[in-house]
């Protein structure tokens, strides 16, 4: 059985690609066969963050159009054994993604992979719908600010109406809230929404909180998923998110226990 996970947000620049790379890497580190697909056709940057941009030959759109095979397009990560990347095309636009084409690719990937992570583009249009359409589960990436929360709310609405699970009357897409770029100081000062505020508004289960961290930018500039940086607080938080996603009880390792309030006891 494979699970398709969409990483989505509505709003741009909140950390979807960072999360897709870190989360997929985390799943692979736990020994799961994992592929991460870049749905951001025309603005591809998952391959950059994964550090494989110079190894791209064929891409997602090539596969959909039959210009290359899936095996030619999938790039194997050099650091983590069971991790693979399906890059986006930089020269096409999102209309190149068709429902039928995406379906065929995902079905083919299901034969090989346990987890298929879909990095959604921003917005609520075609590209975002393509990324979420076949999802079984969704990570809703949200920053602690009003506009991001509002867009997440909109996206959650679409997950319950514009997906194959909705169309086929199957169990709904399982939603997980992931709050990223969380800065406790700014929350305390009142500049940012608290995790409680966000949960009150979105009313979906919280999977984790990723702190705002300089290590994220450093990691992405050097093409390393932040989960591979052992010294990074954000990387550690992502690893905990992965563990929690896999159904483990996670005692929280954050210094000063800033997450303990959320995950301390069950």
């Amino acid at each position: 059985m494979s699970t398709v996970i969409v990483v989505t947000s509505g709003k741009g620049g909140v950390g979807k690609t960072t999360t897709s790379a870190a989360f997929a890497t985390g799943l692979a580190l736990r020994g799961h066969q994992t592929v991460v697909i870049d749905f951001d056709v025309g603005l591809r940057n998952l391959d950059l963050i994964m550090g494989c941009e110079r190894r791209v030959v064929y891409d997602f759109v090539n596969v959909i159009n039959g210009e290359g095979t899936l095996n030619q397009a999938i790039i194997k990560d050099k650091r983590v054994d069971s991790l693979f990347i399906l890059p986006a095309s930089q020269t096409r636009d999102k209309e190149a993604l068709t429902l039928k084409g995406v379906y065929r690719v995902i079905e083919a990937l299901k034969k090989r992979f346990e987890y298929i992570v879909c990095d959604s583009p921003a917005g609520i249009e075609h590209g975002a719908i393509m990324a979420m359409y076949f999802a079984d589960e969704a990570l809703i990436v949200t920053n602690p600010e009003v506009s991001s929360v509002r867009d997440s709310d909109r996206i959650i609405g679409l997950l319950s109406s514009k997906t194959h699970r909705a169309a086929q009357n199957l169990d709904p897409v399982k939603e997980h809230l992931l709050i990223t770029r969380y800065a406790q100081k700014r929350v305390t000062k009142g500049d940012m929404l608290s995790a409680q505020d966000i949960q009150d508004i979105l009313a979906i289960p919280l999977l984790g909180i990723i702190p705002e961290s300089k290590s994220v930018l450093q990691a992405s500039n050097s093409g390393v998923p932040v989960t591979l940086d052992k010294a990074s607080d954000a990387g550690q938080a992502y690893l905990e998110v992965v563990a929690r996603f896999l159904g483990e009880e996670v005692s929280n390792s954050q210094k000063k226990g800033f997450l303990s309030h959320w995950f301390g006891k069950k």
Binding site: R150, D151, D153, R154, I156, G157, D200, I201, A203
Partner: peptide, 27 residues
């Protein structure tokens, strides 16, 4: 009984409407 999300609309053509979950901004 489910949240009414931003961009969604719920209409009770007749009678009353009872919502047990939050009604979001933009709904």
């Amino acid at each position: 009984s489910h949240p009414v999300r931003s961009g969604q609309q719920v209409v009770a053509l007749q009678g009353d409407l009872v919502v047990l979950s939050p009604v979001s901004h933009g709904a």
